[in-house]
Design a protein around this nucleic acid. Structure first.
Lengths: 198, 198, 198, 198
DNA sequence: TATGAATGAGCGTTCATTCAT
DNA sequence: TATGAATGAACGCTCATTCAT
């Protein structure tokens, strides 16, 4: 009657999904998004192709899920940063930029973010969701900008646009940093954030 | 049967190559980089697949060549801008940014630039060449930054890094603008360049 | 933990098997034979795939069993018809034809009957059994034909062959009627049976 | 300028297509429709899978084309038969039935005809075309029936329906004859056609 | 030089079947 | 007995590349 432990099954299932997504982002950030096949991910996760399809309906769904988790995690982190009390806005921005640029996996997310909408085969609703999350994630940064403007430490102007410019710059720099490129120019985070200083 | 004229042959050859490269960038910026096949380009150019392989050894070579021409053209334009006499540095930067963002083909170049090194199959020497050209193309912008600093209109700091930051931001924004994304935030070029104002 | 009752167990087992077979023919007649998977049937029966394999060794065995039951049921019905007293042979034939053509599930059985031998993977013994049952099921119809000949209402000739021709025609018409085909010619059962009238 | 012989190319192309279609029907009639894969057909035709897709867009297109040719050839033959002068209708019907049943490939066509509409993946327009050709091909037979009725040799009734019944019966018998089934009942064509005799 | 037919490795995906729990 | 996660062979299909003409 009770041959399975439902709770444990669900836990195993969640772990498997996490394992697949982790393997996926690892492979993508190593091999590049376009060259990553389902079988690459399966191999990295140490499971069979069939099992991949047990947990995900399609390649696109895997990629969409990887991207979604990345965006949600990022959103949570940047929200916490914005709500932090007592830290000056400029310091928050520096922490943000330094944190992002320090994580070598972020260039993969950036590529995926851009690819998600470039590829025709990605369903429109997914593109929309990706874009919405991106836009939503700008809000906490805009709030930091606004706080800084009230402190008098951040330049004037629409805070949302400032956040948009900052994120774009950091994404651009992330891509420049991608493995293999080796642009021989180091990034000085404080100098970079200094551009937004009043 | 066919009277040969070496000079004319060479001209025809150059025209063919130019035609192929033009068709390539057109198709890429329409269909997206990853979805563009050799036969797509051949069809757009109105020639056969076999002929493509008379002029280029491989798909990667075509893409590398497209990218190379794009970088060289870009380099020429930005060099002319730097050497222009009598124009204030800030105006030059605004012209540069506005010109780049206005041309919808540039997001394709940006994607290709990043993809060139992401893809394992791209030979190391090509990656190196792409990176070198990218770095070289930063020099004229750095010169404009330096001029502006002497004018007192541009913020202090390593001019090359300032150029690097600016280009990264503009590349980031280019990707945000790519068709389909529709980030509902408009870009104000003067405000953006204002970040670099002293 | 579980008090066992051999008799009850057997009954549960039989019910399960019946449930699976019923679900199978339902799904097959809806989705088509070729597109019906084991998991489709399991879902329709509300049981797991694993349970399916407790009761049947393979997909082919399920299909063979579905077909077998269909043939046995059909055989019983046609035998009862033949043994019916007091009904004229022509009326019996009309009832037979009308009854068959009225049941939309029969085209699925017809397809399965033909597929059973077409598919290489079906074991020879099963093909033989299917054929044997088909031939056996012709006998009652042949008897009706013979009765009719004695009544003087059915055309002369080998009764078995007449039965064979009739069944073939009705199977052919069944397939024409299959959903989606829409052959715009209605079937008049009495006219059809009239062909066998003396 | 003229490196190819366009005319000859077209001829080669037509031959290849014919070769593929011939191989397809051969394989289908041997292995069965459902079990025939693209690679089976390619192997039988002695060409590669890629070449198959050079001539046909998809598996469905190949099957649709095989079926179409079969139907068109059949239509031509039955039309010639109907227009034949001086042959009694009954003889024509006997020739028709005997000719159809003698050709072992016809059971494959019959299966394909039925499968074409059973399978959901077959586009609606193809199903319609198949049905239309089937219905059109009934007309010549209906004409023969009508001629026979005027001769006084064929039973009364709607000639189109008589043709429909005859074709259905013959298709049914064709399936019974399919290799492997071995129904131990021989078919007597004259007896069978006799059912339609006045 | 120009062509496009031919190739085949590799892709994403399905599904009958097995088996530890 | 009951489960469903795991497997992997096989499918339809794509496309960069080759080569005889």
């Amino acid at each position: 009657m009770c041959p399975r432990n439902v709770e444990r099954d669900q836990r195993v299932r969640d772990e498997r999904i996490q394992l697949i997504l982790d393997s996926a982002i690892t492979v993508i950030s190593t091999k590049g998004f376009g060259s990553t096949s389902i079988s690459d991910i399966a191999k990295a996760a140490g499971i069979s192709i069939g099992t991949m399809y047990h947990y995900f309906r399609s390649k696109d769904e895997i990629f969409a899920e990887v991207l979604k988790r990345g965006q949600l995690d990022y959103g949570k982190r940047v929200l916490e940063l914005a709500e932090e009390q007592g830290t000056p806005a400029l310091i928050k921005l520096q922490d943000f930029a330094a944190g992002w640029l320090a994580n070598p996996i972020n260039w993969a997310y950036t590529i995926m973010l851009q690819t998600a909408r470039t590829t025709d085969t990605v369903p429109l609703e997914i593109r929309q969701a990706v874009t919405d999350r991106f836009t939503a994630n700008l809000q906490p940064l805009a709030r930091i900008m606004e706080d800084g403007q009230q402190e008098g430490t951040i330049v004037q102007g629409d805070p949302l646009k400032l956040a948009f410019y900052l994120v774009s710059m950091i994404q651009g720099l992330t891509l420049q940093q991608a493995p293999g490129f080796e642009i021989p120019i180091s990034i000085e985070v404080d100098r970079l954030i200094g551009l937004f200083q009043a």
